[in-house]
Design a protein around this nucleic acid. Structure first.
Lengths: 280, 280
DNA sequence: ATCACTTACGGGTGACGTAAAAATC
DNA sequence: GATTTTTACGTCACCCGTAAGTGAT
């Protein structure tokens, strides 16, 4: 059977067009590549290149072979990734979430439940979360909507309400609720890794600027010495009461500011999910 | 990247259950396999087996890896096959047909049109014909029905009428037409490689026996010295008038006895198909 | 004793690098 | 002269086989 390294070499040549360029990217000497391509042709029993004296280009058969090579290599890479992820999934619980809120209250429960084995968590896009669930990167994922897919289990988890955190002098401070439109154009301090919330506030308040903070604690610190509003949620306030620090928290009135979360896992982890839910 | 031979070894172990059995089928020594499995675990950085002192079995991760290995190996085999077939398709024209009839009149035209390059023809099932078209095994295929698939071109070609060939003393000899039902139960001489026609006559005449002849000429020879009926078609009679040899040919009346053929090829061979049709 | 796997050691294939030649721009 | 491919040759990695050892049936 054809050796993998021959396919890698072919793909590199396909990508970079010349043997020398491809050899550089492969970190091998050019004559090695020349030999590899010959060997590939020989083992397939097929001509893959048109050769002039100092020029070599793929013919139609060669291009077809290169496409197949790409597919095979992608498969091998997927195998490596998935097998490693599956192995890790046996020894660890990894939770992917669309935003930090539900992680804040679920992480302590998970670490308590699966004591002894390590727990990791990541904020990611919905697309990557579902992909990562299927390839064993995540044991559980948390989505802001239900999913109905073959082999996947989905349970309604909890809700979250977004609130505006302002100083008592802010016009909204006296309101019972506030809409995105009313504060559109104002500038906000915001934690950088809020997942899908960022899409929501940016799209609903297109005239605002958001001063992103890589460090979560920085948001609280900056708010203490600034008039700038920022965002909190009922979950945040519950888990970290210090975030109140003299500010007024006004709920948003828009429907997008209120979300139901769903816990999602593979069929094979249904048991773990049930255990987790029972621990609530 | 993981070497192919490691995947082959893993798959063999997956299939045969023990290192010794797998090694035998791989034609290598057992210690080699033992080493391969260790190396695979090492390069994946993952435990694939549960080892007792003299026993080794795949764990869950190992089974997953073996499944992925199978997929990769299948891909490589498909690559080898398709690339070789594509290369051949450049140098030859290969025609797959659902039955011999339309081949008899199209082969001379094809050999005339593509003179210099070799022409081969095969009778196959509809399923295999379509598969072979997609993987470049066949340049053209001939089907008894149209197809409408992405990337595939289909042209109505010609018709064929099945007839019953009998001696003048046969009851049907004086009829203008005959139905399958009327001769059901009688025994027939039949060429062995008539493709889908065999399915038709067997299903429409379940009480008949068919004496299959591997050699096409044997049908004519046997018919000369026998009272047994056999099958001909308007195409056969046209191409080989000798098949008449004193017999009466009565057309079947059933709709299944009349077929329209379609010439099918890949989009990329549309030009060749057009040239072929224009040569008619 | 036989079977199944592992460890240890030696051998040969072959993938790679270096050097140099040939050809094109 | 710079770039690209091919040919030639030497080297080292590594895959395999043989032989020996351990443990289980």
């Amino acid at each position: 059977m054809i050796d993998i390294y021959l396919l890698e070499h072919l793909q590199a040549f396909y990508k970079y067009g010349t043997l020398s360029a491809a050899a550089q990217h492969l970190n091998i000497a050019q004559p090695s590549l020349s030999r590899s391509m010959k060997k590939l042709e020989e083992s397939l029993g097929v001509t893959l290149f048109e050769r002039q004296k100092n020029r070599i280009v793929l013919n139609e058969t060669g291009k077809l072979a290169a496409e197949y090579a790409r597919r095979v290599l992608e498969n091998v890479i997927e195998m490596e990734h998935s097998v490693r992820a599956f192995d890790r999934s046996i020894h660890t619980v990894s939770i992917g979430s669309c935003c930090p809120g539900p992680l804040m209250d679920i992480l302590p429960k998970v670490t308590g439940l699966f004591h002894g084995i390590s727990v990791s968590s990541v904020i990611d896009t919905q697309e990557n979360l579902l992909k990562g669930l299927k390839d064993y990167t995540y044991t559980f994922i948390i989505l802001p909507n239900p999913v109905d897919l073959e082999g996947i289990v989905c349970k309604k988890y909890r809700e979250e309400q977004l609130l505006l955190s302002v100083t008592p002098f802010h016009p909204a401070a006296s309101c019972k609720e506030v809409s995105f439109a009313e504060v559109n154009g104002q500038n906000f301090i915001m934690y950088a890794h809020v997942g899908f919330w960022e899409d929501i506030v940016r799209s609903r308040m297109p005239d605002s600027k958001f001063f992103l903070q890589e460090d979560f604690d920085a948001v609280g610190e900056l708010a203490r010495f600034s008039e700038l509003p920022h965002f909190v949620s009922d979950i945040t306030l519950n888990v970290m009461p210090s975030r109140r620090n003299g500010r007024i928290n006004v709920p948003f009135s828009d429907p997008e500011s209120h979300v139901w979360y769903y816990l999602v896992c593979l069929e094979q982890n249904k048991g773990k999910l049930r255990a987790l839910i029972q621990s609530f």
